[in-house]
């Protein structure tokens, strides 16, 4: 079951007050004091909260001697050799490209598949529609078991276990119920006149979808891309199992875990490797954070 209808998205985090916040403007003195006290209490907590990130980035520029037993995140010399060694010796370059490939292609596959299904569910009546909805309900409610074993088995028997394609397909996975329903809901509320006008111009089914409706689905498209991006970039169990005997196919999330024992005393290099894995998604998040927050609050799959 999806919660898209249940949880509204957090809109407008801009300076202007969100529609439901208590009335702003006239901040009374008591309110100003509360704001100040709240801010002063939260600030140290916030600093501790992100300390591991500060530590890993700063350690990535230090030698091990500078890291050990030190709290100071600042360093006088920026050493880049950790990054060079991580990229070459520890194979981060390869893992990085693997992750980009799997993430990019699985976004392409899953967004396309979900948008197609959402489009026909949202705009057309056809025999079998109820069966499709029943299927979506089953996806959510059937107990999962331990699916990673059959998925490994399946990819192996399809002959895809030697390439990144098996992992890519598995990461794209089946339909994402929440995204399909978001697409269906969004396409359903677009006016039918658009379709009729396009038909008069001689556009067929596919063209109407590609040229008329799909370009209007921006917000849902963004949500679909973000959810799959998060999932594929960070996923662990499935890529771990699929690459147990093929280290060259590892993604970053698996690669860093696997190098843990080999380089357990080389904190500088492991920090650089971790920074390489963590930073892309964090930077994208900070730039597009409004869309991320909306995706998570409006599109929460249970």
């Amino acid at each position: 079951m999806t919660l898209s209808t249940a949880l509204p998205s957090v809109t407008s985090d801009a300076p202007e007050a969100p529609p439901s916040a208590p009335p702003r403007k006239r901040l009374r003195r008591s309110e100003r004091i509360a704001l100040l006290v709240g801010g002063l209490i939260l600030l140290p907590i916030a600093l501790v909260w992100i300390y591991p990130f500060v530590w890993v980035v700063s350690s990535s520029f230090k030698s091990n001697a500078e890291i050990f037993g030190s709290l100071n995140p600042f360093t006088s010399t920026l050493r880049l050799d950790n990054y060079i060694r991580a990229w070459h010796e520890a194979n981060m370059g390869r893992y990085f490209l693997n992750t980009i490939f799997v993430t990019g292609m699985s976004i392409l596959i899953s967004v396309t598949v979900n948008a197609l299904l959402g489009y026909v569910l949202g705009r057309y009546a056809f025999p079998g529609k109820r069966i499709i909805y029943a299927m979506l309900a089953l996806v959510v409610f059937l107990p999962q078991g331990y699916t990673v074993i059959p998925i490994f088995d399946l990819i192996d028997s399809l002959g895809l276990s030697g390439s990144l394609w098996g992992m890519t397909l598995a990461e794209a996975g089946g339909v994402s119920v929440i995204v399909v329903l978001l697409f269906a809901g969004y396409f359903a509320q677009l006016p039918k006149e658009l379709e009729e006008a396009a038909k008069v111009d001689g556009a067929g089914f596919l063209r109407i979808f590609l040229r008329v409706y799909l370009p209007l689905s921006g917000p849902v498209l963004a949500t679909a891309v973000i959810l799959q991006f998060m999932h594929a970039w960070n996923d662990f169990l499935l890529p771990l199992v699929l690459t147990l005997s093929q280290p060259e196919l590892r993604t970053l999330a698996v690669g860093i875990y696997s190098l843990q024992n080999q380089y357990f005393s080389d904190w500088g290099m492991m920090s650089a490797a971790s920074t390489i894995a963590l930073m892309p998604i964090i930077i994208v998040f900070i730039i597009l954070q409004k869309y991320f927050i909306e995706s998570f609050s409006g599109a929460v799959k249970g």
Binding site: V56, F236, A253, V254, I282
Partner: peptide
């Protein structure tokens, strides 16, 4: 936003 396995190692 961080990959759980990576942040675990860190």
């Amino acid at each position: 936003m961080a990959a759980a396995s990576v942040i675990g190692v860190v």
